[in-house]
Structures are given as structure tokens and as C-alpha cells.
Design a binder for these strands. Structure first.
Length: 805
DNA sequence: GAGTTTGAAACT
DNA sequence: CAGTTTCAAACTC
């Protein structure tokens, strides 16, 4: 269903616009906008071309018009990815879209879309699918792209990969035209192969949001193209775009791109750049360092990849590749991180995609390997089948149901049930067993935001503990997932597993007696996950066996409330950055807000608190004492006040809300020297803590810090373990990010008084479309601070775009 | 483990 | 849209 709808939309878009124009629009627009774009896009796209920005880009890029087209596309895709996150609450939007899409997809589990990334997985199926997607998009974009597409498709073939690489090497540098193709293919392969994330990106995007999917896919492919093309052409675009999108994280990468290289060098550089970008990002800080030196190694890596690719089993391949070439794996993971920084979406997708690939493969090809993808260590082919099997259904996430939730919910569960997240990926695609997949997707999203954090935070798994939190905070859960994915090999995964397994909470299940697990009362159902053994529910219909019923029920619920299955907690897109682990709760907010009257928002009764997020304007709570942030927005307020004047509104709101007292307190806290330290996370954190201490009269200990852990996702993620992770700390650690996030949040919050409206309204721009923010917000920054800086620099050119709609 | 409290979800 | 009921989680003992 969804696929069809998507396809229609795509077609319509393509027809109306030109592929190019569309892309441009898309780029400019945030993911959320993507939908809007579809509606508005056509005329706008033309405008883009005419727009000063477009001209500027053209001028900058030495690339030929044709290339420019590609570039524009890529740019669009890239920018698109980044921008969206910035403007809108990326998560929310993505999530929304993802839901629908996912659902639809779920309906059509077999569809290739998910598999797009599969390249690494299985050359055949996945590759085809991916190629199909890419081709579709590309075709739409331009006939030129078609060539590329073809090459890409061919590239899918793993066996061919090596040869392709060689060719690509030759081609890349040689001619821009050819290079693009080869590049695209090479990059695609490389990316997909090297970076599970890359592959993941595409599929993930698909899963997440219909359009966003397309965009993402295109963006991904385009990304690769752009990167490659950029390399060959040495276009300014590269510097601009790539730096923004890809390189942000590490200047080094940008340099690599910029470098004019011999064909091979260019090829390697392209690959390396990709890898570096990804890898560096993924690996995080350390990776960046590595990147510079990576090229040679990368080449080896590539070869290795090719070899790995040659290896039949996709999952096995990935694993093998990963295991065989740590560098690759790392690179891939890093890549995901890169995307995070660059584009949150992409990152998310990557993560997901990686898993998806596996999943898709499994789903489509039914290859067993899928399961492995995630968690399982490289060699694992273990569970694939089992996972899919109906038996897994218990674990399985509901096909369409909130992926995020699924991911979250499933995460703990899945972890238990399925040894690894690996199972997840497959599950998502495939309805019944898809839980794992959802998780991955969710995680992916989060991962983008929190790649690093994940790594650090793995403990987060706790979210499972909270149960709901997972659901609510896809990000969080995602973080978990992501972490696992990235770290599958890493001990962290193990930790997670262990924790998950060990922790009963992770396994939490519903205990429904009357709802038959077909209502949102049921945590499992709400999370889009099938009930599992651990569940003690009665008369449960939330099982694979009753998939039809479940789906029908979902539809009904969705018809009433399209966001019913959307993550309840929306993070600021930015937080995704590695450091996200530190993400302050403040950055995230509950869509609808809570309505607590007696709990003071200090207990898990409060969804906000449970989700580890502060209360927002949307909340109608009374006597809010939410340790993560009071409704008044004390946290926000403070941040915003420091950064923005707009905050006044928020204050007004707070005052309106009636948390006057709180607000006052907050203000005071803000004013306080402690808080004063402007944006420092500490300031935020402290105030909160203090506040909590003050407010949390009832149960200071719990509510205040420790419990925070409730863990909502963000914080909880890693080790915080509900109990004690102190939001403040995290905040401290990440001033800038937090600040940015906070900034974003306010916007989101403001925009999102109603969850739905908020997301939509967020339209990008809203306030801060201003280039810098947007870029930073977009998540490009997320990955790294430095990246943000870069972005800011580039931003100037884009601003004009932002205004566009 | 049973009972109570709480607030979201569902219903009217 | 507001009020009420239902429900299951969270919490307490």
C-alpha cells in the first residue's frame, strides 16, 4: 500500500518537477517538507534553478550542467537531509512518515525498498532492489542519472563489485559523466558494503518516510554521486556540499575531496572520502584522526570489501567484511556517524539500512543472513530464518505499526528473544518478525543522533526497563539499537545483549487483560511490536498469527490519530550527534505532552518523565516538577533566553500555562550565576538538578536525578541506567550540542503545540531557518562540533534556500 | 503478590 | 470539545 502511494507520489513529483528540480526542492526542504514539497515542489523547483542559490551553486561547480544536475540533486538530497532535521523536529517528522511508510511497507514486506541497501547483503536481491529504487529516483531526476543507475544496478552485484571498483577507479577520475556512474556504483557499493549505514540509509529512509525515503535514497545515491563527482570534478560543490553533508565532521575529509586526484587516487579518495567521512564520523572523534591516513588503508579496505562482497551471503559478507576488515566496518559505522553529523536522517537510515539490508534480504530472498546483520557478529548467520519464522512473531513487530516504537519496544524484547539486534532488521521489513527491524530503524534514527552516545551509553538499554520509554523515545531506543549495530562486534553490543537479556525490564512485556493487546493501552501494541513470551497478557491478539487483526486495528487507530503510533517523545534532531548520549532531556519533548495532576511529573506515570524528557508547553500538567525539564520550559527557557529573544514567547507560554511558580523559579535559576553560564550544559543541567531538588520535594532522590533514568531514551541510553545517569552531566559534556538542540527544541515545541501541527508546522524555517541554525540544526552538526562550524560557513550560500518553501 | 494510584486511551 | 469510563502501568505495602 504504502509503496504504491509512495510510488505515486514519486511519479507525480517527478512528472511535475524535473528530477533535478525536485531534488533541489527536496534538498532545501526538510524531510517533513518533503511531503509539502511534493505538493508545492514543482513550481518551486524551477524557482530553485533560477534562484540565486542555484546559480551560485552552478557558478561554483565546475561540473557541467548535466553534472550540475546531479549535483543539485545530490545537494538537494544532502541539504535536504540536513535541513529537515534542523528545521523540523527531524525525529518527529521522520517518524511520522516512517510510520505510514513503514506500515505500507509492512503491508508489502516483500517490496524491495527496504532492501535497497542490501547491496552488501545480497548482491542479487538487495542490489536489484536498491538499484531499482535508485534507478527510480534517478530516472525521475534525469535521464543522465539513468546511466548512473544502470551502473549502480550492475554494481549491486557483489561479484562485480571488485571489477567495478577497478573500473570505477578508472572511470571516476576520467570523465565526469562516466565517473558519476562508476562513482555512483562504486560509492553505492562501497558505501553499502563498507558502510552498512550507507545501505541502511536508503532503506531506512524508505522505511521511515515515504518521500523522505526517496529523497534519502536519492540522497544517498546522490550523496555518493556527489561525492564522487565532486572528487572528479573537484567542484566547489564538493567542498560545499560534501563538506557540509559528508565532510562536516572532519576537515580532513573535505580536503580529500578537494584534492584533485588521478583516476585511481580520485577513486580511492572518493571511496576513502566516503569511508573516511563515514568511518571517521562513525568512529567518532578518533576516527577522524584516522581518516587522513586512511586512504591507503582504504584502498586495501576496498579490495577487501570487494572480496567480502564476492562472498555470497550478504549478511555473512557484511559480517565477514566487517570481521575481516575492521577498518571497513569501522568505516561503515563511522559513516553512519558521519551521516549523523551530516544528516541525521541519513545516519538513521544508515543504521537501519544496514540492518534492513539484511532484513530485506531475508524478507525478500529469505536469506538467513539477515539476522546477523546487526548484532550478530560478523560470522553469524544464525538466526535469520528463525527470526522470521512466525514463531518469532511474538517478537515480531507489527508490520506497519510504529516502527520507532517497535524498535524501542522490540529492542529490549528483541534483544532477549533474538540474540542480537541483527534480528531486528529483518523483522522490520517483514511484518511478523520484523520487530527487530523496526528497532534497528528506530535505533538508526536515534543512532544518527546519538551514535556516540550510544556507544557510550549502551546501558541505555534500560529503556526497556522503562518499557514505555523505549517506545516513546525512538531515539533512545534507536540509540540502543544503533549502538548495537555499530558495536555489534564491539563489547557494547554484548553489554546490551547481556543487559537486555539480564535485565528483566528490557524484556518487559505487557500485562493486558482486557484490551487483547489491540489498543494503545498495550505497550507492545503501542510500540508496534508483537507480544512476546514475556508478556503476561490475556487473550492476546497482538501476535503474528493475528497479523491481519493487528494491522486492521492499527489502521483504525491511526485513522483516528495518525500519530498514535508515532514516537511520543521527539528529540531535537540534533542531539543525534555522537555525543547525544548526553543529550539533555530538554532537547527532547513529548509530542502531546503529559496531563499529570498528581504525580508532579516526577513519576513514570508521566509520559514525559518516563520518556526522560522535560515537560513542554504542550503539557497540561499541574505542579510540574519534571526533573528533565519543567513545563515552563525552565530548561528551554533558559537556553533560549540566552540564545534567543524568541524565548519570551515561551515564557509567556509558561506563564500562560500556569506554571507560573515554576516559571519564576526557572527564571531565577536561569538568572542565577550558575545557570548563567550561558549555554553551558551545566547551566542547564544544574538548574534542573537544583530545581529538582527544590521541586522534587516528594521524592527528590528518585525523581530528581536518578530516576531520570527512567531513561528515556536519550539519557538513558548508555550506562546511565535509569538510575543514575544525570542528565545534567550529559548536558555538561555537551554544551554546544545541547544548546543547539535546545534551540531547536524550543522551535519545535513552539511549533508543535500540537504534536501533529507541531511537526508539520515546524516547517523548517520557522524561525531559525536562518542558515546557520538550520544547518547546525539540521543535524549536520550533530555529528561533530567542528562539522557544525563548517556547516555554518557554508550556510551563507544556503540561506536563501531556507526561505524557500 | 495484592492492592492502590495514576494518567493515558477510549468512549460518550 | 469536554466529561466520563476503561485500562494497564506504576507504585505502595
Amino acid at each position: 500500500m504504502g509503496d504504491e502511494g509512495k510510488g505515486k507520489e514519486r511519479e507525480s513529483e517527478v512528472e511535475e518537477k524535473g528530477g533535478k528540480e525536485k531534488e533541489l526542492l527536496v534538498v532545501m526542504d526538510t524531510p517533513d517538507r518533503s511531503k509539502i514539497q511534493t505538493q508545492i515542489a514543482t513550481p518551486v523547483s524551477k524557482k530553485f534553478e533560477e534562484s540565486p542559490v542555484f546559480n551560485f551553486l552552478n557558478n561554483l561547480s565546475p561540473i557541467k550542467p548535466v553534472q550540475s544536475v546531479h549535483i543539485t540533486q545530490t545537494l538537494n538530497a544532502l541539504s535536504f537531509s540536513s535541513l529537515p532535521s534542523v528545521f523540523t523536529s527531524p525525529h518527529a517528522t521522520t517518524i511520522k512518515e516512517s510510520r505510514f511508510l513503514r506500515r505500507h511497507q509492512l503491508s508489502d514486506p516483500s517490496k524491495p525498498e527496504f532492501a535497497s541497501d542490501s547491496v552488501s547483503k545480497v548482491d542479487t536481491d538487495d542490489g536489484v532492489l536498491d538499484g531499482g529504487h535508485n534507478t527510480e529516483q534517478q530516472e525521475d531526476l534525469s535521464s543522465e542519472n539513468a546511466i548512473v543507475q544502470v551502473s549502480v544496478e550492475s554494481s549491486y552485484r557483489c561479484t562485480e563489485l571488485t571489477a567495478e571498483y577497478g573500473q570505477s577507479l578508472n572511470y571516476d577520475c576520467n570523465s565526469p559523466l562516466t565517473s558519476p556512474k562508476t562513482r555512483s556504483t562504486a560509492t553505492d557499493k562501497c558505501v553499502t558494503i563498507d558502510n552498512p549505514a550507507s545501505g541502511a540509509l536508503v532503506p531506512f529512509s524508505e522505511s521511515i518516510s515515504g518521500r523522505s525515503l526517496f529523497v534519502n535514497q536519492t540522497s544517498v545515491g546522490e550523496m555518493s554521486h556527489t561525492n564522487q563527482s565532486g572528487e572528479a570534478a573537484e567542484c566547489d560543490w564538493e567542498s560545499l556540499i560534501t563538506t557540509e553533508l559528508l565532510n562536516f565532521d572532519s576537515p580532513n575529509n573535505a580536503n580529500t575531496y578537494r584534492k584533485s586526484l588521478t583516476p585511481r587516487t580520485a577513486y580511492y579518495t572518493s571511496i576513502t572520502s566516503l569511508q573516511q567521512q563515514f568511518g571517521c564520523i562513525v568512529q567518532g572523534e578518533g576516527n577522524e584522526m584516522d581518516n587522513p591516513s586512511t586512504q591507503p588503508g582504504e584502498g586495501s579496505c576496498l579490495t577487501e570489501f570487494a572480496e567480502c562482497q564476492d562472498r555470497t551471503a550478504s549478511s555473512s559478507q557484511e559480517n565477514d567484511c566487517l570481521g575481516g576488515t575492521l577498518s571497513q566496518k569501522t568505516s561503515s559505522e563511522p559513516a553512519s556517524h558521519m551521516y549523523r553529523g551530516m544528516r541525521r536522517r541519513c545516519l538513521v537510515f544508515e543504521m537501519v539500512g544496514g540492518r534492513r539490508k539484511h532484513l530485506d534480504e531475508n524478507s525478500i530472498s529469505v536469506s538467513p543472513t539477515l539476522t546477523q546483520s546487526d548484532g550478530n557478529t560478523p560470522s553469524v548467520d544464525k538466526q535469520p530464518n528463525s527470526i522470521r519464522t512466525p514463531s518469532d512473531s511474538s517478537r515480531c513487530i507489527l508490520p506497519g505499526i510504529g516502527l520507532h516504537l517497535n524498535a524501542l519496544a522490540s529492542a529490549p524484547k528483541d534483544l532477549k528473544v533474538v540474540k542480537h539486534d541483527a534480528s531486528i532488521p529483518g523483522r522490520l521489513v517483514i511484518a511478523p518478525g520484523s520487530t527487530a527491524t523496526f528497532r534497528s530503524a528506530m535505533a538508526d534514527q536515534d543512532s544518527f543522533h546519538q551514535p556516540l552516545a550510544l556507544a557510550t551509553v549502551e546501558p541505555d538499554i534500560d529503556p526497556s526497563d522503562s518499557g514505555l520509554p523505549h517506545v516513546e523515545d525512538p531515539n533512545q531506543s534507536s540509540a540502543m539499537v544503533v549502538y548495537d549495530e555499530f558495536n555489534q562486534n564491539s563489547p557494547k553490543k554484548k553489554r546490551r545483549r547481556l543487559e537486555n537479556d539480564a535485565e528483566p525490564e528490557a524484556c518487559k512485556r505487557c500485562n493486558c487483560k482486557k484490551s487483547k493487546c489491540l489498543k494503545l493501552y498495550c505497550e507492545c501494541f503501542a510500540a508496534g511490536v508483537y507480544c512476546v513470551e514475556p508478556c503476561s497478557c490475556q487473550d492476546c491478539f497482538n501476535k503474528p498469527i493475528h497479523e491481519d487483526t493487528v494491522l486492521a486495528t492499527r489502521k483504525q487507530i491511526e485513522s483516528r490519530n495518525p500519530l498514535a503510533f508515532a514516537p511520543k517523545v521527539i528529540r531535537s534532531a540534533d542531539s543525534a550527534t555522537e555525543d547525544d548520549s548526553s543529550k539533555t532531556p530538554a532537547s527532547a519533548r513529548h509530542k502531546r505532552g503529559c496531563n499529570c495532576k498528581k504525580s508532579g511529573c516526577l513519576k513514570k506515570y508521566c509520559e514525559c518523565y518516563q520518556g526522560g524528557v522535560g515537560c513542554s508547553i504542550n503539557c497540561r500538567c499541574e505542579g510540574c516538577k519534571n526533573a528533565f525539564g519543567r513545563k515552563d520550559g525552565s530548561i528551554f527557557m533558559g537556553l533560549e533566553a540566552e540564545f534567543e529573544d524568541d524565548e519570551i514567547d515561551a515564557q509567556d507560554r509558561s506563564s500562560r500555562d500556569g506554571n507560573k511558580h515554576k516559571a519564576v523559579i526557572q527564571n531565577e535559576t536561569e538568572q542565577n550565576p550558575e545557570s548563567a553560564p550561558p549555554a553551558t550544559p551545566l547551566s542547564f543541567g544544574r538548574p534542573l538538578v537544583q530545581r529538582h531538588s527544590f521541586s522534587s520535594k516528594k521524592k527528590p532522590p528518585r525523581s530528581s536525578l536518578p530516576t531520570i533514568g527512567s531513561s528515556s531514551g536519550l539519557y538513558a541510553i548508555p550506562g546511565l541506567v535509569k538510575p543514575q545517569f544525570l542528565p545534567p552531566q550529559s548536558k555538561f559534556d555537551r554544551h554546544f550540542e545541547t544548546v543547539q538542540e535546545d534551540e531547536l527544541l524550543p522551535d519545535i515545541l513552539q511549533g508543535n503545540r500540537s504534536p501533529i501541527s507541531g511537526i508539520k508546522s515546524l516547517s523548517p524555517n520557522s524561525k531559525r531557518v536562518s542558515p546557520p541554525h538550520s544547518h547546525s540544526d539540521l543535524g549536520i552538526s550533530p555529528g561533530r562540533r567542528s562539522s557544525r562550524k563548517l556547516i555554518l560557513q557554508s550556510i551563507p550560500s544556503f540561506p536563501s534556500l531556507t526561505p524557500q518553501h
